[in-house]
Design a binder for these strands. Structure first.
Length: 421
RNA sequence: GGAGAUGUACCCAAGUGGCUGAAGGGUCCGGAUUCGAAAUCCGGUAGGUCGGUUCUGCCGGCGCUAGGGUUCAAAUCCCUACAUCUCCGCCA
């Protein structure tokens, strides 16, 4: 959510920023409503001030034995008037916030204009895609041949875009999860969190999944809960409606969770394999940072995610998303893309973003520099550290051998208890 | 799922319709005492948010878990929701 005061005081800056996203939103309408709102508030508060002063007289006059019926009936009229005004203010408030909730974040100035992921800017590359001396198989073929991935059983039990992992496949997924959590909590200084997998509507609004993207989420029938699309939602909302202490910043959490996405609108894409599932595992990194150094925190968060790929010897590159590919809530995002032989290209495995105050304002997450200072909104950041299913896929594909086996990256051997599968 | 209790500021806590935006503690800040400190004593502040403004201040609205309602007037009465605790039931 953008700051209404920013829109009020500098509408051209806001419009300019949103133009990058080709977003046509009602800034002018907001300005009009805002003005209307403030004039109604002024009127209502003036009356209330009189009400408060005058009704204090009532008990005093009563005590003196005077007649208060005249003043009481006058107060009644005032009360009716303010009630009416307050209803109008509420209506306008609702309209304003409904619009505000659908306005995307303003991109950081470093974010270049672009239409699609084609225009993303490559920042750096690590490792080289392997030259296979044989025809490499896609991970879904490896998975089927080795009996470690079974999407058709999941189709029978649940439906499309679900997978059973089995035997060494299930163990590999679990090994990767544990490895990632250990690295982030032991080496990178994140506090481990295991969050709820369901959240209520306000949490989804807080991190920006709602109200605009309700079709992408799974709603739990008969409740007001949503299945989390990412641990970002519960973990960021962990500090909702709080005022944090500046000396505790940055606060850093890592969380494993299953993630649930309806994937509305991606019918026919990535239909095979682990790339696009309704349910997948992910380790998420979340930071609450001082606005003064949040972009440094974004760099280090991205590095923390990259470190996993380095330790696993997987080739990857980092791109900065252009405005057209940037998520609704983000001011700036680095995608980390791992080399996926079956796709013949780099595929997203992590998305690391700085939301600046966009989520903090929605979720009410503030901090104070000093005890007597006014609270300010924190900057929230997050990134996958990493998507586990896609990591499994990348390992199966990148480390497959001609004889059909898959060697296990050194760092995972102790978690797997074997050097190859 | 059933029954009951509770929800007041940073923490504890008083308060059943009007002079209570909130007693009293604690915390915190300043001072006295002391070589210094502890203890003690004196004094002071009370969070947040939305408006206005002649803007490092001042004025006003809201605000006693949240949302509604009754009333000229609500922390106080009524309704709903949520959370916490205790007991019962069920259960990994």
């Amino acid at each position: 959510m953008l700051d209404i005061k920013l829109i009020r005081s500098n509408p051209d800056y806001v419009k300019e920023g949103l133009k990058k996203r080709n977003s046509k939103v009602g800034i002018d309408e907001i300005l009009k409503l805002d003005e209307e709102r403030r004039s109604l508030i002024a009127e209502s508060e003036q009356i209330k001030s009189k009400q408060n002063a005058d009704s204090k007289q009532i008990p005093i006059l009563k005590k003196e034995g005077k007649d208060v019926s005249a003043i009481m009936s006058e107060m009644k009229q005032l009360a009716e008037k303010t009630k009416l005004l307050d209803v109008q203010v509420k209506e306008i408030d609702d309209k304003i916030s409904a619009i505000l909730l659908t306005i995307p974040n303003i991109p950081n100035e470093k974010v270049v204009y672009g239409e699609s992921d084609e225009d993303n800017v490559e920042i750096r590359k690590y490792g080289e895609p392997r030259n296979f001396s044989f025809e490499p198989k896609p991970h879904w073929v490896i998975g089927e041949e080795k009996g470690i991935l079974d999407p058709s059983a999941a189709g029978k039990v649940t439906g499309t875009r679900f997978t059973f992992y089995k035997g060494m496949g299930a163990r590999l997924e679990r090994a990767i999860m544990n490895f990632m959590m250990d690295v982030h909590s032991n080496e990178h200084g994140y506090t481990e969190v295991l969050p709820p997998y369901m959240v209520h509507r306000n949490s989804m609004i807080g991190t920006g999944q709602l109200p605009k993207f309700e079709d992408d989420a799974f709603k739990v029938y008969g409740t007001d809960f949503f299945l989390i699309p990412t641990a970002e939602v519960p973990v960021t909302n962990y500090h909702r409606e709080e005022i944090l202490d500046a000396k505790d910043l940055p606060i850093k959490y890592c969380a494993y969770s299953a993630c649930f996405r309806a994937e509305a609108g991606s019918a026919g894409r990535d239909t095979r394999g682990l790339i696009r599932q309704h349910q997948f595992n992910k380790v998420e990194l979340v930071k609450f940072a001082d606005p003064k150094n949040s972009y440094e925190e974004l760099e280090s968060l991205t590095n923390d995610a990259e470190d996993i790929l380095k330790k696993l010897d997987l080739p990857y590159r980092v791109v900065r998303l252009c405005s057209g590919d940037l998520g609704f809530t983000s001011a700036m995002t680095y995608d980390i893309e791992v080399w996926m032989p079956s796709y013949g290209k780099y595929v997203e495995i992590s998305s690391c973003s700085n939301f600046e105050t966009f989520q903090a304002r929605r979720a009410g997450i503030k901090f104070k520099r000093n005890i007597n200072d006014k609270p300010e909104f924190v900057h929230t950041l997050n990134g996958s550290g990493l998507a586990v299913g896609r990591t499994t896929a990348a390992i199966l594909e990148n480390f497959q051998q001609e004889d059909g086996s898959v060697t296990i990256p050194e760092a995972l051997v102790k978690y797997m208890g074997t050097e190859k599968i």
